[in-house]
């Protein structure tokens, strides 16, 4: 594994050589987004959703790819961010940015409170505990009808904007989303090469060994969890502002499976993987659009096949086949 795409192991944490293989995933992403901006309309909507998911998956990748932890409950934080944005802007007529900030703060506080005891868990317990957190938040969005309207959902959420300026056009929204994804990708690339990134990759290798090296394992795990929750919350807020509507199904188990598929297809632990995975998984099933049940079926089956035959994702397949 010496290719510059699979920078998952500590020894490749130095600045990678800028080869065409490093650039290709970004080129692909830029081409797809550029095409969508140029064409507008329906392709812009599809790519827009892909970019929102990309933000979420970048967060998932920080926690699962970099630190090798497990969370099936990150959708909880997307729901917290999304619903906080929706309620504050639609019901209380706040402007989007402060509402998004409050949503992110709420997600961080809750992630901190539940992260501390949850991250001590291991194996199946951690998996089931995080799955439970996602489901609890979803149940609350269903049952707390006085605030969330339950299954009816909240509508009339204004588009993203600031200082009296609203981004209403497809292209404008796409440019905004692409900038957010670019910033998040940059952040995760910087993080990977930072002291924290190295600590996380030590934790990923072996918690015991990392602890023996003097790394504060619990603190770094929590930090990765918080960053991941913040990005999930951001994705949730972006979603409600782009769509203008939110209901509990948006942040359900469907989202968990979908985002895991994106992460695996793109390549878990890589920098460009989340964006590439999100774009590919959003573009591929376009032929199934309108048959939501077939989509989930396809995602689930694809995920199982990936886990069995290509657990390192498309990027690994690619770098293996084209090795010079």
């Amino acid at each position: 594994m010496t290719s510059s795409l699979s920078i998952t192991s500590p020894e490749t944490a130095h600045r990678p050589r800028l080869s065409w293989r490093t650039v290709l995933p970004y080129g692909f992403a830029a081409a797809v987004v550029g095409y969508a901006i140029a064409v507008g309309g329906y392709p812009a909507t599809v790519v827009g959703f892909a970019l929102i998911y990309a933000v979420f998956v970048i967060g998932l990748n920080l926690f699962m790819g970099f630190a090798n932890q497990v969370s099936f409950g990150q959708n909880a934080f997307a729901a917290i961010g999304g619903y906080t944005s929706a309620v504050l802007t639609a019901t209380y007529e706040w402007t989007p940015l402060p509402a998004m900030g409050v949503g992110m703060a709420a997600a961080l506080v809750i992630a901190g409170l539940i992260g501390w005891p949850t991250l001590r868990l291991k194996g199946h317990y951690l998996a089931m505990g995080t799955l439970a957190i996602g489901l609890i938040v979803q149940e609350i969005t269903v049952e707390w009808t006085s605030v969330t309207q339950g299954y009816m959902g909240l509508s009339g959420i204004p588009p993203m904007g600031a200082f009296g300026f609203e981004i209403t056009s497809d292209r404008g929204q796409l440019i905004m989303l692409a900038s957010v994804v670019a910033a998040a990708t940059f952040l995760s690339a910087r993080l990977k090469r930072s002291r924290m990134g190295r600590a996380l990759s030590a934790v990923a290798g072996s918690e015991e060994a990392a602890r023996a090296l003097g790394i504060a394992v619990a603190r770094y795990k929590l930090l990765a969890f918080l960053l991941s929750a913040a990005l999930a919350s951001l994705a949730g807020s972006l979603f409600v502002h782009v769509v203008g509507f939110v209901s509990p199904e948006v942040f359900g188990l469907h989202m968990v499976i979908l985002t895991f598929t994106m992460l695996y297809v793109g390549g878990i632990g890589t920098i460009a993987g989340p964006v590439v995975g999100a774009l590919i998984i959003s573009l591929l099933p376009e032929t199934f659009r309108g048959f939501k049940e077939y989509q989930d079926l396809a995602y689930g089956a694809a995920l199982i096949l990936m886990l069995i035959y290509a657990p390192k994702g498309l990027s690994a397949l690619f770098s293996h086949r084209r090795r010079p």
Partner: peptide, 13 residues
């Protein structure tokens, strides 16, 4: 875990 969870979704759908 992830594969069996995905299997759950496939069977549901």
């Amino acid at each position: 875990i992830l594969a069996t969870l995905a299997a759950q979704i496939v069977i549901e759908r």
